[in-house]
Design a protein around this nucleic acid. Sequence first.
DNA 1: TAGGCGCCATGACATCTGTCATGGCGCGAT
DNA 2: ATCGCGCCATGACAGATGTCATGGCGCCTA
Lengths: 201, 201
Amino acid sequence: MINVLLAEDQAMVREALAALLGLEEDIRVVAQVARGDEVLQAVRTSGADVALLDIEMPGQDGLAAAAELRRAVPGCRIVMLTTFGRPGYLRRAMELGADAFLVKDAPAAQLADAVRRVLRGERVIDPTLAATALSVGADPLTERERDVLRAAADGSTVSEIASRLHLSEGTVRNHLSSCIGKTHARNRADAVRIAHENGWL
Amino acid sequence: MINVLLAEDQAMVREALAALLGLEEDIRVVAQVARGDEVLQAVRTSGADVALLDIEMPGQDGLAAAAELRRAVPGCRIVMLTTFGRPGYLRRAMELGADAFLVKDAPAAQLADAVRRVLRGERVIDPTLAATALSVGADPLTERERDVLRAAADGSTVSEIASRLHLSEGTVRNHLSSCIGKTHARNRADAVRIAHENGWL
DNA sequence: TAGGCGCCATGACATCTGTCATGGCGCGAT
DNA sequence: ATCGCGCCATGACAGATGTCATGGCGCCTA
């Protein structure tokens, strides 16, 4: 019997996935959480063999939760399950040591399949997604450039970003200009969009 | 026995929801589609009593599908099911004559509950969401302003938008300025964000 | 039929943005 | 110990953006 923990913030989706996994004879959902920062605790008390982690979650995102889990409970297998097949997500998940990466677009049968396979020591990744992730390349932005671009993502002006990050306006403009260049964007908003789609923010 | 059609583009979520509804004694999922433009056809051939429609879907969004369905098969109940509780979505769904509006954040039990209730002629809406939708007010943008703002959403420049919509650059700037004023935004990107969050795009 | 409004346009203006050159500081690698 | 690079900053410039006044056209409504 495989013990699975389910981490997903949308209650209806989470419980639906639990119902789906419940149909399998050899799988049992032993814990459910809605926040990233509750994953570790729940894995410990439930003794789950596999953690199924969504990425977009409050508290702490699924990638951070995976990193924490990998350190604290190395024996627990990690399956990332996300709406968005952003190349950067896949890359970060793999660097963190996740065992599988699934998108919610995939047929439901792949879920139970992935759970069984990671438990046998296999790693499960959509080949198409892997290919695009490799072709897109790694995040070209520096730490600080990411900070600034994130701060610009909601439509803030340069002066607002500058005061929020305690920088001069010139520095903010320089960082943004650099982001625009590195992402091959036409302007700030375009750079935000591209970075977002690639999973760099 | 209640016959339900499920329209949701993410296969894993769709099949999970089907599994969830399948646990109910009195509910049967008789059709599943992944695109908005396949809803009507599927309702007709399956003879579903209730259509469960996601909003974000390829082909045609769930709201358009609901409008089409309401006209062609008035007897079929409509339950909107969406990730985002955007006020504009709720408002449009209600104006279209949807019978229920659920967000995926809600507990799973509400799904089957809503299906049963709409079949008894009730309308089901989250009261909190209804309150915010009313307080936010209706979409203040004109048809054309929405077009222009949509075209600006991907970070396009004024000249690109102008040529795409066959307008002069001045007109585009005027429309955008008007959008910024009506949404109380600080600039174009902010206006896009606000309109998006409110479900106006 | 007169007014209101959406839509399109022009021109002028102030401001914001994006780019570039330049330079200082700190850190890690060769 | 020198080089490269991330990081921060300044100043200057061109071009993009946002605002405003103004006006024409068509449509609907009072």
